[in-house]
Design a protein around this nucleic acid. Structure first.
Lengths: 221, 221, 221, 221
DNA sequence: GATGAATGAGTATTCATTCAT
DNA sequence: CATGAATGAATACTCATTCAT
């Protein structure tokens, strides 16, 4: 009995098992990479570093991802999709009055649970050329991140932007408030962005976060 | 008398002239570098690239700055000092009611005039380790950038934070508003940050900016 | 069965194999580097040069050694350890009369076999600052290289120094010679050093070397 | 009266004064350079460093010396000439019995007074290729440094070597000692070299030096 | 699937030397 | 005579990526 035949006798993995191993490893790699990309920056993080911290070899990493950039894109894709799914944006694109507060709280939960990702995303988007590429790859994410960069934003009303704007139009009609709906929509995004930026630091105070969140709801609901 | 014979006056440059040359070149280099660091990111910007765009040799750049990182630090130092000076924070540390609106508009002017710098600074500060170094180097800048990382902010009341808080305390006393002053201060910083982040993109709409600015003043004044 | 199908056995290298490859390559690099460092000097020897002569890429060299200086240090460490081991200094630290001649001949053998290393070491140690570092790294080697820098050598009697001194004390007692033992020890080291310096040139005459060696034994035995 | 005419009125330097200034500066530069070359090594010492420590500009240094290598050569030339002159070798090339002890003491004085130079020279000569160049430039210095590298040294009997050998021939004839004159000459050079190497460190003990010196005289006189 | 040795193109950095003033 | 800004060729070092096993 050769050594080889011994190996043959060990219960071979099923295709299903292979797929599971693959996905587990990919997730592991992406998690480790995200953490380092976010904390030390994409360029300062080396593939060797990621592989070592993930407990695998560089070669294997390249078995899963074609390149460092592909890894980055996979991470962004994954998280953006999660965000979309989580925010339920595709569903009906309508934000009822009852849903508004819930929506804001959802955003907060999302931020808290994925601080690293947001830190990374902000870093990337602040580089003009990366940002352009990103917007091409995720045209829908535009207003998720920054509202109205396009000169004349009515031309590119992304779904989420439209959803919020509709909310403020209805609110104005109902309450008789005198604000300009476009500006109010912008203010809402500005506030959310400021809130996001402030809260994605690991050492940010959780109490302050909650209080600010309540205040935001108070202001815009 | 030919131009050549004029040149023949071989009197050496005075120390003053040398100083001027130095400062001019350093400013040039820093300006060029900032632009590239901000748009393409620190790591993707090469020293060769900076030198070429500044119209000098790589060697000369190293005559003025010890390393790429030293160049980055010099840029940050310069700009932070300018900001401090511009915002006049050291002067009296007191923000009268009349000054409040003026202060916000000043912030806006500052942002518009130094978009590249702010884009760079945000990128850097989003990296946790860089941010720690920065806070060590500019302890006072703490709340200028992000308020309240310290658990219990009463322990580290930076001057600008204190100045704004005092403003809201007085406002509350005067108007009888029922807000929590700490939270209102935080909200102010959150809003300013969101506003900053939104407005530092080169393609950001100037009209929207002005409207948002007015709304912010309306909300907090 | 073609050669190709044999190769198709894709079993990965074992850790043992990896270790062997590593050690072989490190030895190769160090050998090549030593030769060039010794002959052309540390600074005039470029990493590219070493890599080319070792038949590897620069990158690989840096896979094994962190820097050019680390490579130099590794070489020195390796050789010094070999010398220590070869001279058997740690063993009993006692030099019997019978062993004395053998000891001198051993030194000669060691010099002849590692001329490059000694040429390099002498070069390095002649630089005061390098020498200080070296003495910190190898405190025991002190008298191996140069005896008596310390004012009052009784305070720092390194093992080899002590061993030789003891020999001359015994010799004096036995023969009734009237020399000062400290001075005789110094003279021995001085002579050995002069002998070493003279014999480490590749073109040095082997006959003269043998004659001088015999004369040294005659003088000090 | 223009500024220029004022300068004109200041007593202009005479050609003689110019020459003196020139020589003073050159000496200063060479002294500073030698010190650094010896302590930190030729390659680690930069021109900027030398200029700064000499209190002059780099440009001026190049006014005096064509290149870094030219500076090194000038230093070596100067010192070798001084050594020759000091040892009085050209004079008659004859070393009487009375002169022998004086000669050895002279060597010692020379070593003590120019430690840096000797440290530098040893460093240079230990590099095989530099050594070759040196021997071409100073053929006479050969035996000053190392005796008998040439295969069959009778072919290249340098003056100093011959002088010493003659001394030992006479000594043998007079005393009836049974040594081989060639070997004794070699041993003398070996001992002097070892003595030199040991004593050129700044921290070498002066007492030990004196004792060793006396012992050498005792041994070879 | 898994490993880490090996590559090489790229990048920061150094420093002797030149030159306008 | 004197300065130090300016150059550019050389060199150390990095790191994504490939590949044999």
């Amino acid at each position: 009995m050769t050594e080889r035949s011994i190996k043959k006798n060990m219960s071979p993995r099923t295709p299903q098992q292979f797929r599971e191993i693959r996905e587990e490893k990919m997730t592991l790699i992406m998690d480790v990479a995200l953490e380092h990309f976010a904390n030390e920056g994409y360029f300062r993080t080396t593939i060797s570093h990621i592989a070592r911290h993930a407990g695998i070899s560089k070669g294997l990493l390249y078995n899963y991802f074609d390149s460092k950039e592909a890894l980055l894109k996979a991470i962004v894709h994954r998280s953006v999709n999660e965000v979309y799914h989580y925010l339920d944006i595709d569903k009906d694109g309508y934000l009822s009055d009852e849903e508004f507060e819930f929506f804001i709280r959802k955003i907060n939960t999302m931020l808290q649970g994925k601080k690293s990702f947001w830190r990374l995303l902000f870093q990337l988007l602040l580089q003009n050329d990366v940002r352009e590429q990103f917007l091409k790859a995720f045209p829908e994410s535009d207003s998720l991140i920054h509202p109205g960069h396009e000169p004349g934003d009515t031309n590119y009303p992304s779904q989420i932007m439209k959803m919020i704007k509709d909310y403020f139009i209805r609110k104005k009609a109902k309450t008789g408030d005198q604000y300009d709906t476009d500006t109010e929509t912008d203010m809402f995004f500005i506030t959310i962005e400021g809130f996001a930026l402030t809260s994605i630091y690991s050492d940010y105070n959780i109490d302050k976060n909650e209080k600010a969140l309540n205040r935001i709801i108070e202001l815009f609901k």
